[in-house]
Amino acid sequence: MSLLEVKDLHTSFRTDDGIVRAVEGVSFEVEKGQTLGIVGESGSGKSVTCLTIMGLNPSRNTISTGEALWKGKNLLTAKPRELREIRGSEISMIFQDPMTSLNPVHTIGRQLIEAIQLHRDLTKRAAHARARELLKAVGIPKADARMDDYPHQFSGGMRQRVMIAMALINDPDLLIADEPTTALDVTTQAQILTLMKRLQEEFGSAVLIITHDLGVVAETADDVLVMYAANVVEQASVDDLFNRPQHPYTWGLMGSLPRLEADLERLTQIPGQPPSLLRPPAGCRFHPRCPHVMEVCKTTVPPLAPSERDPAHLQACHLDQETKDREAAKLLEITMAGAG
């Protein structure tokens, strides 16, 4: 049995303008100790997917259907109390913006200790010791002294380390990281990613990492889910995805990665805007922006199906296999040329 098994997850929000379907039919599994990456543009539904699993969407005006089985128990129908016991102890979460994710009026020591004492019957002293231990583990210098400092006395990178310490403090089986490096500068990003990888090995947690940065996925993930406009458009192991991408949207994402070596005037981009989830386009949702668009794309939704070359590689595109292979090869060539 997988640790986490998400089946046909749908989440929609009732708004004044109508119903926004933020996630439609997402399925995936996370195995013990494994890392799954979810990639996509802003508003593609990747964060909502995780918040739904955690039960952190505002309860009013949110409708979720499908299943999110955690060790066999459906989190979507779990009682608030059961969910609370899982949150922070078995599944924990790191958020995008470390500058606002910590309570400004409590010391970080107090916030770390709160995380422990919510789930474990430890004395104040033992909890304090555990909190210090974690601060040291995430590489905060003078951890003992910094327990009594407030969040505003830390830099962004240091705050994200505190968030990671807080997430790992109860030895979770799954760590959900929602764009953990997006708000950090590039050198800090690399440090945080390295730290997360090291700690994942140390703590043996599975990781679900959400990002819009393919580089982050390439560095950390074992499997990747590509999301576009509330749907999964491609799902594969990280090697397969980077070597044989099967979906025009994935090609667009890879093509738009900035390359220092390539002598290009401008960055390549995917034309157009992500569609409105209030009134998504008919057929394939990517068709208005797709350079390979065909008549069938405008009317029929392509199912997420195994690719002809590899049954483990799922993709949702009407294009024939030859075109896909050709485009993937072309993309790979450019990448290689850039790297060489």
Binding site: M54, L56, R84, E85, I86, R87, G88, S89, S92, M93, F95, D97, T100, S101, L102, N103, P104, V105, H106, E114, A115, L118, H119, M163, M166
Partner: peptide, 29 residues
């Protein structure tokens, strides 16, 4: 709607505690 309130919920804090220790402590400043 602050991020740190979501963090508190993600830690598994019960609603009463979230309200007292995290929401009101900041909202009433």
């Amino acid at each position: 709607n602050e991020d740190f309130v979501r963090t508190a919920r993600a830690k598994g804090a019960p609603e009463g505690r979230v309200l007292r220790s995290h929401v009101l402590r900041n909202a009433l400043l």
